[in-house]
Design a binder for these strands. Structure first.
Lengths: 349, 349
DNA sequence: GTGAAAGCGCTAACAT
DNA sequence: ATGTTAGCGCTTTCAC
């Protein structure tokens, strides 16, 4: 029968019961409903428990209660500060009210995303905060079916009918493009990783294009880098040969923007005079740069915080799980230059 | 009796057994020891399981097996890329071989550290990767006692007799100071957060001082910032008034260094001509800076990877849990200037 | 090759 | 105010 490998396992409720001359139920109550116990009994039990270094086994409790007091967090990578901050916001909140966190990272990979999600579910997490690469396919395929039992909320996504916390990427992107326009930029390029891995990037591209179209600018070309976190120097060089300076490059996130700037420097292109750059996310390192990176700032810690709060309010107080759109703001750093005003569209060449 | 809150909970082994006309034991075997089953039975069970969307409840399994297939990771904050990278390294490895991860962040707080550690233990994690603020007091107080049952390994710490993975901070710091010396710097300041929260910072200070002393330089003053992640502008300004440029500031980590540089810029001090800066950790944003931050590079992903591998080798193959010191390297960015050679120490003023 | 049954540690009816 | 007891979902002897 005995098949556990552990040595002298931690004391269980049974030892405490024996030692304190009470039933196991009483020991349990001492930790869960102390008001129910006679002060003296309570004291005795607690004392014995402390003496034997007893701590309730949360696995046993979880099995019995049907709740693990744990939430699952799924995200692409903590290497991107934007997700790290979001996680931090969620984590702090959860820990504060006694919930633990199980994480899984997907590295923007679809396969892994699904598998990790299953594992989290298998561990019986009480709820989930999901930052998916692309929320659309996964959400329909799998989540809605099996997660009917496990509440979840998306971070950084916006899907009709599904609880989520995010900025309005589409509008934010338009705002950013408007800013460029206000500085007399009319030639813009949008740079991102593969869109299929990130519907955020996709929405941002759409926003930029919508703005450009509305203002009657040239269509915004889309340049695809191999990943979402770093630019390919060769492609960047080619890009900047093709679209000669001055040009404005909107990057789908700050990591790409910083990487781009670093490559520009090595190509001896000045920022912002030759190349104007702006990003998305508003991660801390961007603001500390020289020049500071102009970017759409997301309140990432808050996004994590809110997502977690909503989820836990739902779990503990049965609040309805509703979506939230949080405000973004534009941080005007120094990576966008002012161009001389140009003749109106439609003017002769 | 029934007291779980969940609705139509996921199918359990019992339903599968009924539906497939076998015992629960057989269902269990289908997932754990399929070789033992008649091919036909196996097929039938698997089919039914798939049909009902069955997935083994890991809480039940954990309770029975006495192992959760989960490791606990404790760290100050994922907001610091150095820990995020370490986590990423560990996470990827763990997930690859089927382990899950429960995280807790401490925000460099002692109280929280202990509490979070207990929670992790209560969840019956099979092992722990710990990045403690200051390993010394905690290790002796609590871990050694109760964690006798739960194996653990420290990341970024070095404590005699305790398994850990880290660079040699003391030596690394000396190397960095030697680099400064080679550039003819003789006036150095060491800047960090509160030492009691970070024995890393403490070891690095020691290394710098040891080097300065060995080379016969002036004693290295220690300036303490309120936190480990950001400089206080007021203190920085005071510091740079007191120790007038040119001066070299060694920061106990890159986040402080970047913050310092940002403040210097706003004070119109040039880097590196007026203030030479160097850091520790070698986080990605530092290398992308202009000028790139000179720093001691730690292989953080690898540190996480190795720590996790060692821990899991111990758990799964009973390998002895041993310490590792991984190599650091100095990244010579552009934040340290070359000073004109100065007369030897002891020369008349 | 398969089933019966015990039990991991805990909690919550229910009974007293 | 406390004890008795069943059982959460699973694995694993032991018996056939």
């Amino acid at each position: 029968m005995k098949s556990q490998s552990k040595g002298p396992s931690r004391a269980s409720i049974l030892e405490i019961a024996r030692e304190a001359k009470v039933s196991t139920a009483t020991v349990s109550r001492a930790f869960n409903r102390p008001e129910l116990l006679h002060a003296e009994t309570l004291g005795r039990v607690k004392r014995v428990a402390r003496q034997l270094g007893f701590r309730p086994n949360l696995v046993g409790r979880s099995l019995r209660r049907g709740s693990t007091q744990t939430i699952g967090v799924l995200l692409p990578t903590l290497t991107n500060p934007v997700f790290a901050e979001c996680f931090e916001g969620a984590c702090r909140y959860a820990q504060n009210i006694g919930y633990s966190i199980m994480v899984a990272t997907t590295n923007y990979d679809h396969e892994g995303e699904l598998e990790s999600l299953h594992t989290l579910l298998d561990h019986q997490v009480d709820g989930l905060i999901l930052t998916l690469g692309s929320a659309v396919p996964l959400a329909s395929h799998d989540l809605l079916q099996r997660a009917q039992a496990t509440p979840y909320i998306l971070a950084y996504s916006m899907l009709p009918g599904i609880p989520s916390v995010t900025i309005d990427d589409f509008r934010a992107s338009q705002h950013l493009a408007e800013l460029l326009a206000a500085f007399n930029h009319r030639r813009m390029v949008f740079l991102s990783g593969p869109l299929k891995d990130s519907d955020r990037a996709a929405r941002r591209l759409l926003g930029a294009r919508a703005c450009a179209e509305r203002l009657g600018f040239d269509p915004v070309p889309h340049v695809v880098m191999p990943t979402h976190v770093e630019c390919d120097p060769v492609q960047v060089e080619r890009l900047l040969q093709h679209h000669r300076p001055p040009i404005a490059v909107m990057c789908s996130n700050d990591l790409l923007a910083l990487s781009l700037m670093s490559i520009c420097r090595s190509l001896e292109l000045r920022i912002p005079q030759d190349v104007s750059v702006c990003g998305f996310d508003g991660i801390a390192p961007g603001a500390m740069y020289d020049p500071p990176l102009t970017s759409v700032v997301q309140p990432s810690i808050e996004i994590g915080h809110i997502a977690c709060k909503k989820l836990l309010d739902h779990l503990t107080a049965n609040h309805r799980l509703a979506s939230a759109i949080v405000p973004h703001r534009i941080f005007e750093g120094g990576t966008v230059c002012t161009l001389p005003p140009r003749p109106d569209k439609g003017a002769a060449p």
